[in-house]
Amino acid sequence: MDINEIIKPENLVYKKTKLFTEKPLSYCPGCGHGTTHRLILEVIEEMGIVSDTIGIAPVGCAVLAYEFMDIDMQQAAHGRAPALATAVKRLMPNKFVFTYQGDGDLAAIGTAETIHACNRGENITMIFINNGIYGMTGGQMAPTTLPGMKTSTSPFGRDVRIMGNPLKITELLANLPGTYYVTRQAVHTPNAVRKAKKAIRNAFEYQKLNKGVSFVEVVSNCNSGWKMTPNDANKWMEENMFPFYPLGDIKVPQLEKA
């Protein structure tokens, strides 16, 4: 059968969501940011909530997230996205509000805002990209950098005796009474993408319940920062990141368990 006979509108099974703007993504080849952006936008499109959604971009690689997402967005100072989201949601309780933050933003400079927004139980969704490194500034050590992992500010590997331990902030947040749903996902394989999308969908759906923060960590690669090809970075991530940051739900709503 000729390929051109298949490529017809009636046979379309997948195309990029129209909530992506025309602007090409500024991320490095193979970076999980793009995939995660797409999943969020697909969820917003499928839920039909564009006119009710406000996104908050961080400082870091995703600082320009608003350039790629065709929704109303705010750009926050480094680490402060949960504070913005708190006000936005409290002032407009019927809207869907999400933050999109990296590990430096959410787990280092913004730790206080993160923990307190989660502890107050703000009714928001937080998407947390954890690639264990500061990508934007050129590959420095992050709060989530693994022990022994080489970065430009830990060139001989992270020595925890000198540089401290990596922070499993997601487990920490799951212990707070204000978090309703906490999960850790990845976006490097088709299966992981399907699960991550379901998690992001859940996270947005839970905002309707007014029960607190829904938090989705995405363990992702940073092939530029890790100095590997994208597929090697994904393999390295499976072998090194996942044992330390295991994928799966960490806190699920009690109702679902029953």
Binding site: Q74, R80, A83, A87, V88, R90, A112, E113, H116
Partner: peptide, 25 residues
């Protein structure tokens, strides 16, 4: 809305979020 924030830093950024929505904050 009246909220005691966790810090002055958080408070001014809440103001930023609210102001971004056209609200008087």
């Amino acid at each position: 809305v009246v909220l005691q924030a966790e810090s002055e830093v958080a408070a001014i950024n809440m103001v930023y979020g609210g102001a971004s929505c056209g609200r008087m904050v």
